[in-house]
Every structure is written in C-alpha cells, then in structure tokens.
C-alpha cells in the first residue's frame, strides 16, 4: 500500500511539472516522470501474483505476470520517442524565440505576428 501511495505521489509530481512549470525542459521532464510512474504501477500490479522473474527454470513456482512487463517495454520505448521529439521541438522553439520560458515564447511569438 505504501508503494502505491508513493507512486501516486510520483505521478502527481510529474503532472505538477507538466502543469505548473514555466520552463519547457522542465515540462518535458515532468512528462517523463509521469511516464515512469505509470510504468512502475503496471510492473507493481503484475508483481502481485508472484515473486520470481518470468524466466522459466525448473523449480519456479510463482512467477510474476509477464504481460504487463511486455506491455511496459512498449510504453518505455514510446516514452523515449516522445521525449526526443519534444526536446527537438524545444530546441526549435529556442532557436526561433531565444527562450525556454513559455510566457516569453508566447510574448515573442505575439510580437512577431
């Protein structure tokens, strides 16, 4: 139960980073933390019905559920892709406006149009 509450806190920290931070890079890191919290929740859920790694050897009784692990493999790779794309967009915005702060970016884009 404690680990679940901690994961909820972690997810809310990531959400706070996305919502409240002004710096784009910090927002992207918040998205990453959110992703990590969701991944860990799934691993924890699969962990509930066993304790051994899902690599079959003789004498294994209760392995964890391998399906959440396989799905989270996908989620991790897609998280990396999203992060890379978001960072590239941030670099592009920085080059156009000279700032990572969303308020400044908004002002400078409004000034130009």
């Amino acid at each position: 139960m404690v680990e679940r509450a901690l994961l909820l806190c972690l997810l809310l920290i990531g959400f706070w980073g996305v919502v409240a931070k002004k710096n784009i890079i910090k927002k992207i890191f918040g998205l990453n933390i959110l992703n990590a919290a969701a991944v860990m929740l799934f691993i924890l859920e699969g962990n509930r019905i066993g304790s051994e790694a899902p690599i079959l050897e003789s004498g294994l009784a209760q392995v964890v559920d391998p399906i959440p692990q396989a799905l989270m493999l996908t989620a991790i790779v897609i998280g990396v892709c999203v992060t890379a794309l978001a960072l590239a967009l941030a670099v592009h915005l920085y080059q156009i406006t000279g700032s990572f702060d969303i308020e400044t970016i908004r002002e400078r884009i409004q000034d130009e149009t």
């Binding site: 909820l8 899902p54 392995v63």
Partner: peptide, 30 residues
Amino acid sequence: VFLSQTPWPTVARDYLMQYGQDESGARNLV
C-alpha cells in the same frame, strides 16, 4: 486506480508458464 485491491488475474500467467516455452522456444516469457 492506484489503491484498487482487485485481485490480478492469474490465468494468462498460468497459461504462459505451462505452454509459453513450448510454443515460442524462449525461456524468457517477456
């Protein structure tokens, strides 16, 4: 979502433990 106590279904895990290695050849079920 985080505090739910619904029991996790074991049916997929049991199937994979029994047939997974024969059907795919991989010992690593993931």
